[in-house]
């Protein structure tokens, strides 16, 4: 009896937290999304979302988020694989995590300097004979910086999954005559797929709503749903439309979680 009561008491802070900072904001966002500019209840925002401008924006957000996630994964998996096998893996891991402690804005400004006309990147291109190129404010710079920022979040879950992998399974595969590629394809990758899924979720979802980098690094030549939300809340003060986009983002995120969700499996 008493243990049940005390367990309930421990639940109170959590319940208050969830109610105040998770449930209430979502309800408010949904509520605002039904109000048009004049403060009347309407579905106009939802109708507007299905016009060419916003659909195109959604598609391009998806495309960039997909590219960012795919490239992060391509770089992160071999990195994590290497990290698990090195001697000082904790130290290496720390080196990868440390940049994520630096403020995002600071990193973005650093890249403006590096990618600028007279920056380090162009000095290098000049030195190897390619010549100065426009790097800043291109798709390339946007994706590069986004991948740079998200990559620790992709490496960590994959690293964890790989380090939990029982080495005797690899020995067994080897003993049974599997080639290294077959071992990877049939044993290692399927057993670390949960780490990959988590990494993809952690990268893809924020990448969908990136907004600051779109201005600083892409010079507003890349417009994501996040940029549009920022504009509607800060500039137009059309909270209804901003909320509507946010509602769609929430729905999309739920769908992604459901599709890539980690189902319990027997080992």
């Amino acid at each position: 009896m008493q243990s049940k009561l005390s367990r309930r008491i421990y639940l109170i802070p959590y319940a208050i937290w969830i109610a105040l900072f998770v449930v209430t904001p979502i309800i408010l966002v949904v509520y605002y999304s039904f109000y048009d500019l004049d403060g009347n209840f309407s579905l106009e925002n939802y109708r507007q979302f299905f016009t060419a401008v916003y659909l195109k924006m959604t598609l391009s957000s998806f495309w960039y988020a997909f590219l960012i996630t795919a490239i992060s994964l391509l770089v992160a998996y071999p990195t994590a694989y290497f990290l698990v096998r090195t001697k000082h893996s904790q130290l290496w891991l720390l080196l990868i995590i440390v940049p994520s402690w630096v403020n995002l804005l600071l990193k973005a400004y650093a890249f403006i300097g590096i990618f600028g006309k007279y920056g380090a990147a162009n000095h290098f291109l000049e030195a190897i004979g390619i010549g100065t190129k426009q790097i800043l404010f291109t798709d390339f710079s946007f994706i590069f910086v986004s991948v740079y920022i998200f990559i620790p979040f992709m490496i960590l879950p994959i690293f964890n999954a790989l380090s939990e992998l029982n080495p005797s399974l690899l020995d067994a595969a080897n003993d049974l005559g599997a080639s290294r590629w077959t071992t990877f394809r049939r044993v290692i990758f399927p057993l670390t797929i949960d780490g990959v899924k988590t990494g993809c979720q952690i990268v893809f979802i924020p990448a969908l709503s990136l907004f600051m980098l779109t201005r600083l690094i892409a010079g507003n030549r890349v417009i994501t749903l996040g940029t549009a939300i920022e504009q509607h809340f800060l500039v137009t003060q059309d909270w209804g439309m901003g909320s509507t986009i946010a509602v769609f983002l929430i729905i999309i995120m739920f769908l992604i979680m459901a599709l890539t969700g980690n189902r319990k499996r027997g080992v």
Partner: peptide, 13 residues
């Protein structure tokens, strides 16, 4: 103003 902003958003895209 909202119309101006929508045009501007479309212009950026």
């Amino acid at each position: 103003l909202a119309y101006y902003n929508d045009l501007f958003l479309a212009f950026k895209m």
